[in-house]
Write a protein that binds this DNA or RNA. Structure first.
Lengths: 230, 230
DNA sequence: CGGTATCCCCCGCGATACTG
DNA sequence: CAGTATCGCGGGGGATACCG
């Protein structure tokens, strides 16, 4: 995108911020992603060459800092400027949550993205010792993207797209839309259970304590996101 | 710009906000512009067809409302959603003011745009009765865009690009960059006068009271902008 | 894993002209 | 003043392959 030839601070800001994908890259960094492939996971439709390009231009703009430890993998961080810009991303997200709901299309409800988000936000500190496996089934999506397993072990959470072969402790069955709407706070577990549009079955403790371990989107509870900016 | 195929509120917000020119149109509306040609004045590099297109898509998105009184000219207003989005624009502007200064190029310092901004922010309530003419000369820019006259009469402020033929009460001579930097708060009248990079001559009362009638960019004093949002 | 390199398409956008 | 119509291009960006 070319510039606007305006000294106005909005124009100068937009020359950086309004590049395609840029807010989503910053969002990823605010959510804790540091590595190239983490950004790819969070933005699967973005081509790697474009991601590379954007990271470079954001580095150039002083928004992102690249750290290449010798031998280690490269990592990307927000600078102070980038964290300030993160506040703009938060505002945009809150606006989207409030005002852009009606623009959500069937195509937006990508369950892979949803699971990637959920995985990152799960709080396993209260989980029982030993392995815990939670499965999610989305009968509405094509078979190859329908099933996901969160495997929790020793405080680590892995997202599997193939059946990992372990016993399942808790199973969610619902549409990707219902699950995402719960995630964003547009509806609740309770409502959807009552509607029979969601089924949760398995370990009663795990099911009963869902409010303890299932954390919603950071935009539903943006204070947590803000903490990461400071 | 196509969508992102993500339910994430940032993505949905960006699908609207990150369109080229969109933040600048919203900025114009926040600053009080309502008419098609006012938007053109504030964004002279934007083609009318693209402006028309954007206004339509923003209307479609529920951000802007078009009101066509019969017989009257059409006027555009921000909806509640639009005013909320305005807060994102403000944030982006504040970010730009703080972090994007180094990206300002010679090309950005368009004096016409600057004068358009200054005109809109002048407070003439304390001006003497009768006509007051204030001229601005920017020797650094090509002759056809070098000179401007603010003609204040009966509380109205007109911006002229041709010598209006009246006596001049106060004359500013400086570069477009210095004037814009003052406008944005990067420097001050006092500093530039001392540097001899700015000359202000004419009526002593008008010159002495400059802090009363010359208002800076809304991004330098964003509370005023916020008031317009509520 | 962490990127580059290439190719090519498409359409966003700028420019200009025109109309009521 | 308030837009619409048309045209053409440039390059942004999607897809894919490839490399260290």
């Amino acid at each position: 995108m070319k510039g606007y030839s305006q000294f106005c601070p909005v124009a100068k800001g937009a020359e950086i911020f309004n590049e395609r994908w840029t807010p989503l890259i910053i969002r990823e960094m605010m959510c804790g992603s540091k590595r190239f492939n983490e950004f790819k996971h969070g933005n699967p439709m973005m081509s790697p060459s474009l991601l590379s390009q954007r990271l470079k231009s954001l580095e150039q703009a002083g928004v992102v800092e690249k750290k290449c430890g010798k031998g280690e993998s490269a990592e990307y961080f927000l600078t102070e400027s980038g964290r300030d810009l993160g506040e703009v991303v938060v505002r945009l997200g809150l606006w989207g949550l409030k005002w852009a709901r009606s623009r959500l299309t069937r195509d937006d409800y990508d369950p892979q993205l949803l699971m990637w988000d959920i995985r990152r936000r799960i709080d396993v500190s209260g989980f029982p010792a030993g392995r815990v496996v939670i499965s999610f089934m989305f009968p509405d999506v094509p078979a190859n993207r329908r099933a996901y397993w969160l495997v929790v072990d020793r405080g680590e959470v892995d997202l599997c797209v193939k059946y990992p072969g372990f016993d399942i402790d808790l199973e969610f069955i619902t549409t990707s839309k219902v699950m995402a709407d719960i995630w964003m706070g547009y509806t609740t577990f309770r409502k959807e259970l009552r509607n029979k549009t969601l089924s949760v079955s398995g370990d009663r403790e795990l099911k009963g304590g869902i409010d303890d371990w299932f954390n919603y989107s950071v935009f539903y509870d943006p204070e947590e996101l803000r903490k990461s900016l400071s």
